[in-house]
Design a binder for these strands. Structure first.
Lengths: 158, 158
DNA sequence: CTCGGTGCAAAGCTTTTGCATCCGC
DNA sequence: GCGGATGCAAAAGCTTTGCACCGAG
């Protein structure tokens, strides 16, 4: 079984268990959305996802996409990001290493990185301020190196 | 001179220099907005700020508030946050220690903290990925201790 | 006097809501 | 069959835009 299918079957089990536990209905739309998300690469927003499903002639509404994403975020199968814009970005979360983001303020490129010290900070701050820290969001903003930054290339041409 | 007035006079100088450097006009609205921001405590959103100024019978428009906030964020006198909601939160940034945030997912309380290791992470990741990291946003999400969490208190009463 | 900035209102976008219909349990 | 979930469209909420007028340089 390919890695992706293996992950998807695990994810489906987790989602099923979560829905049963919360006494929510196991509708075909919810599983179709989950499948669509896990077949994608990288970040996406609600409109992307909605259009993709429409293009596959799947009958869904935006309302259901929003509803299902909320549930998937709740059960940690999907992560929601607010990268400074007013458009929520989402990302599949199971079976992929937890990571943080680095965003180029010039070309909007998003890179990912991991640093174990963040976990340490999370623990220390939680202890200090008596908070039960469950998750975090760390975004570094800057400019990527000249060779890679598309906007700077354009600037040079002008 | 009180601390706040001293800070405000410094901030005004910085803003003036920035506007001159960028060849932007030094309009009374821009300085009134800056003053209103620096006379506030904690976080605020555009509507808060707009209403406050209206209540003081100052004639401003939302458009000007948005425009001026963009400029103030550009020159680092104001910080913009997206705390997971689709409503931008702002905060004065000069003369106050740089810090990060801890948000209670139950009662939405926002605490602040500092940890020098974040600077180290920022430097290391920047070097590793060839990024010129300029600033960051770290938000920890969790639940505050029972005694402090208003929502849990309410839950207990019900 | 010029043209950037402002106020106001309208438009734009993302997200939420209301309601009739549908279908999982 | 009941009541939660869905689809659709309308509404809501934040932000941006267009345009006439104002005023900083």
């Amino acid at each position: 079984m390919p890695v992706d299918e293996k992950i998807f079957s695990e994810v489906k089990k987790i989602f099923t268990a979560y829905l049963e536990n919360k006494e929510l209905r196991k509708t075909p739309e919810r599983f179709a959305i989950l499948e669509e998300i896990y077949s994608r690469q990288g970040h996406f927003d609600v409109e992307n996802l909605y259009i993709s499903m429409k293009n596959k002639n799947y009958r869904v509404s935006r309302a259901t996409v929003y509803n299902t994403l909320d549930i998937l975020v709740d059960c940690d199968l999907v992560t929601k990001h607010q990268f400074g814009k007013n458009l929520a970005q989402y990302e599949k979360a199971y079976g992929f290493r937890q990571h943080d983001h680095l965003i180029c303020t010039e070309c909007n490129k998003v890179l990912e990185f991991c640093d174990p010290r963040i976990q340490a900070i999370q623990n220390k701050v939680g202890e200090l301020l008596q908070f039960n820290v469950l998750h975090h969001s760390l975004i570094l903003y800057g400019q990527c190196s000249n060779e890679l930054c598309e906007n700077r290339k354009k600037d040079k041409l002008n």
